[in-house]
Simulated scan of single mutants.
Amino acid sequence: MEDKSDSLEELGYRVRFDLKDGGSILLDATNGNVEIEEDGTGEAEADTVLILTSDNLEKLVEGKLNPMLAFSTGRLKVRGSQGVALKLAGLLEEAS
Results as ranks from 00 to 15, higher is better:
residue 1 M to E: 07
residue 1 M to L: 12
residue 2 E to K: 15
residue 5 S to M: 10
residue 5 S to P: 03
residue 5 S to F: 05
residue 5 S to D: 06
residue 6 D to G: 12
residue 6 D to N: 14
residue 7 S to L: 09
residue 7 S to T: 10
residue 7 S to G: 13
residue 8 L to F: 12
residue 9 E to G: 03
residue 9 E to T: 14
residue 10 E to L: 09
residue 10 E to D: 13
residue 10 E to P: 06
residue 10 E to N: 11
residue 11 L to N: 00
residue 12 G to N: 10
residue 12 G to A: 08
residue 14 R to Q: 13
residue 15 V to M: 11
residue 16 R to G: 03
residue 16 R to P: 00
residue 17 F to M: 01
residue 18 D to W: 00
residue 20 K to L: 13
residue 21 D to H: 01
residue 21 D to R: 00
residue 21 D to M: 04
residue 22 G to L: 01
residue 22 G to H: 06
residue 22 G to M: 02
residue 23 G to C: 07
residue 26 L to D: 03
residue 26 L to F: 06
residue 26 L to Q: 00
residue 27 L to I: 10
residue 27 L to K: 01
residue 28 D to Y: 05
residue 28 D to G: 02
residue 29 A to F: 05
residue 29 A to Y: 03
residue 31 N to R: 12
residue 32 G to W: 08
residue 32 G to T: 05
residue 33 N to D: 14
residue 34 V to G: 00
residue 35 E to Q: 12
residue 36 I to C: 09
residue 37 E to F: 09
residue 38 E to M: 12
residue 38 E to N: 13
residue 39 D to F: 08
residue 39 D to M: 08
residue 40 G to N: 13
residue 40 G to E: 15
residue 41 T to N: 14
residue 43 E to D: 14
residue 44 A to R: 04
residue 45 E to P: 07
residue 46 A to Y: 02
residue 46 A to C: 11
residue 46 A to T: 07
residue 47 D to Q: 10
residue 47 D to S: 12
residue 47 D to N: 15
residue 48 T to P: 08
residue 49 V to Q: 00
residue 50 L to R: 01
residue 51 I to E: 08
residue 52 L to Y: 01
residue 53 T to K: 02
residue 53 T to G: 08
residue 55 D to E: 15
residue 55 D to I: 11
residue 55 D to G: 11
residue 57 L to E: 02
residue 57 L to W: 02
residue 57 L to S: 01
residue 57 L to Y: 00
residue 57 L to T: 02
residue 58 E to N: 12
residue 61 V to G: 01
residue 65 L to T: 02
residue 65 L to I: 06
residue 66 N to T: 05
residue 66 N to A: 08
residue 69 L to Y: 11
residue 69 L to V: 15
residue 70 A to W: 03
residue 70 A to D: 05
residue 70 A to V: 08
residue 70 A to I: 08
residue 71 F to G: 05
residue 71 F to N: 04
residue 71 F to V: 10
residue 72 S to D: 09
residue 72 S to K: 12
residue 72 S to Y: 11
residue 73 T to S: 15
residue 74 G to I: 04
residue 74 G to Q: 04
residue 75 R to V: 06
residue 75 R to E: 13
residue 75 R to A: 10
residue 76 L to Y: 03
residue 77 K to I: 05
residue 77 K to Y: 03
residue 78 V to N: 04
residue 78 V to Y: 02
residue 78 V to F: 07
residue 78 V to P: 00
residue 79 R to K: 15
residue 79 R to A: 13
residue 80 G to K: 03
residue 80 G to V: 04
residue 80 G to A: 08
residue 83 G to D: 14
residue 84 V to H: 03
residue 84 V to D: 00
residue 85 A to D: 05
residue 85 A to C: 11
residue 86 L to Q: 14
residue 87 K to T: 14
residue 87 K to M: 11
residue 87 K to H: 09
residue 88 L to S: 06
residue 88 L to N: 04
residue 89 A to M: 09
residue 90 G to Q: 12
residue 92 L to Q: 02
residue 92 L to W: 05
residue 92 L to P: 01
residue 93 E to F: 10
residue 93 E to K: 15
residue 93 E to G: 08
residue 93 E to S: 14
residue 94 E to M: 08
residue 94 E to W: 01
residue 95 A to K: 03
residue 95 A to E: 09
residue 96 S to F: 06
residue 96 S to M: 12
